[in-house]
Structure formats: structure tokens, C-alpha cells
């Protein structure tokens, strides 16, 4: 059995412990400081990344603005071209009269003789107010579109008046002619405006006058 006595004074022991703790705290604080500093430095690059993202967004927005402007211009150009195309297409007209007259000549009842066929386009207001040849002024696209629609509407609503005069052997033949006319495409309305018996060759015949109207494209 042995006995030991610590002869180091208590103050010295405390001073040593305190010194070790101070060193430990210093190291810990320094380490934490270095860590915080490095994190702070890294956060600077995050700021740069945000700045770069902002720049990229700005570039994309500029590109979008340019594209929108270009698209608006191209769309306006396309609208103008469509108006030109509509105008060009509007120059071409349907040609129904050769066909109609051929059908009439082929299907006319044998007891009917036509002495006169006349057709006339009733002057629409637009034609009556036709402008004299003036220096051209290109209208705005919207106005051109409106004008194109108006032209199309007017073309479709121009009434035609066709008058047929002749003689028929009897009223049945005349009725057959009216039926034939009604079957011809585009002549929906056929009106008998005059029918009277009168001497013809060696007997009597029915002199008649018919009027047809249609609401289709200009003949």
C-alpha cells in the first residue's frame, strides 16, 4: 500500500486547466471563423450566378421583343398580301351565260319560238357611284379588308334581269318553257309578265314575255 500527495498548488492546477480551455476555445473560434469566411466567399459566387441569370433573362426578353416586333410586321405583310390576293381573285368572274343559253337552246319546248332574249345587270349603287380614275392611294389594310368584304357582298347581291319574248303554240308549251327556265341553274324566279293570243302565220299563237331574276354573281 502506498500513499501519494499532490504537492502542486491548487492555483497552478486551475491555471493549467484554464490555459488548455483557452487554447481549445481559440482553436474552435478560429475554425468556425474560417468556415464562416469561406461560406461568405462562396455566397459571393451565388450572387454572380443570380446576376448571370438576370442577364440571360434580359437577353431572352429582348429576343422576345424583337421577335414580337418581327412577327407583327410579318403578320401585317401577310394581311396586305391576303388583301392583294383577294383583289386578284375578285378579278376573275364566273362565266355562266354560255352554259345557260346552251341549256335554254337545247331544252326549249318545240312549240315555242323565242324572238328576243335580253339580259341586263341592274346598276348597283356602287357602280352608280363609281369613282373616276383618280391617282391611286393605297388604303390601310383594315380598310382594304372592309372594302374587300363589301365588294364580295355587293357582287353576290347584284340582281340580274333577263327578259324573254316569243310566241308559243299554246299555254301548255308556255308552261313547259317556264318550267325549263326554272330548272336552269341560277334562274330561280321566273315571272310571266305578258301573255296574249295573237295571229301568227295561219292561226293563233300565244305571244308572251317572261322576266327572270337571280341574285348571283355578275353575269
Amino acid at each position: 500500500m502506498s500513499a501519494s500527495v499532490n504537492l502542486v498548488p491548487l492555483d497552478c492546477l486551475h491555471a493549467r486547466v484554464r490555459s488548455r480551455r483557452r487554447n481549445a476555445w481559440t482553436l474552435l473560434t478560429l475554425g468556425a471563423g474560417v468556415f464562416v469566411l469561406s461560406v461568405w466567399l462562396v455566397s459571393g459566387t451565388a450572387s454572380n450566378a443570380v446576376k448571370r441569370a438576370g442577364q440571360r433573362l434580359g437577353e431572352a426578353q429582348t429576343r422576345q421583343t424583337d421577335l414580337n416586333r418581327e412577327l407583327a410586321n410579318t403578320t401585317a405583310a401577310r394581311a396586305a398580301l391576303i388583301d392583294q390576293l383577294r383583289l386578284l381573285s375578285g378579278l376573275q368572274r364566273e362565266q355562266p351565260w354560255a352554259r345557260r343559253l346552251a341549256v335554254l337552246a337545247a331544252d326549249i319546248p318545240p312549240g315555242v319560238v323565242l324572238t328576243q332574249v335580253t339580259a341586263d345587270v341592274r346598276a348597283p349603287r356602287s357602280t352608280a357611284n363609281a369613282e373616276p380614275l383618280a391617282p391611286p392611294a393605297r388604303p390601310a389594310p383594315a380598310a382594304q379588308r372592309d372594302a374587300g368584304a363589301a365588294v364580295a357582298a355587293r357582287r353576290q347581291s347584284q340582281p340580274l334581269t333577263v327578259q324573254l319574248s316569243g310566241v308559243a303554240v299554246d299555254h301548255d308549251e308556255l308552261a313547259g318553257l317556264i318550267e325549263t327556265l326554272r330548272c336552269i341553274e341560277g334562274w330561280g324566279q321566273v315571272e310571266l309578265t305578258r301573255a296574249a293570243r295573237r295571229p301568227f302565220l295561219n292561226g293563233l299563237a300565244v305571244a308572251f314575255q317572261l322576266q327572270c331574276e337571280s341574285r348571283e354573281a355578275t353575269p
Binding site: 319560238v113 323565242l114 324572238t115 335580253t118
Partner: peptide, 11 residues
Amino acid sequence: YQSLRQFSITR
């Protein structure tokens, strides 16, 4: 590109 505006056939 033409259209017939009026015609008259009289025998």
C-alpha cells in the same frame, strides 16, 4: 377576267 354586263338577242 371579263363579265357579260348586258346582251340582247333579237330575232
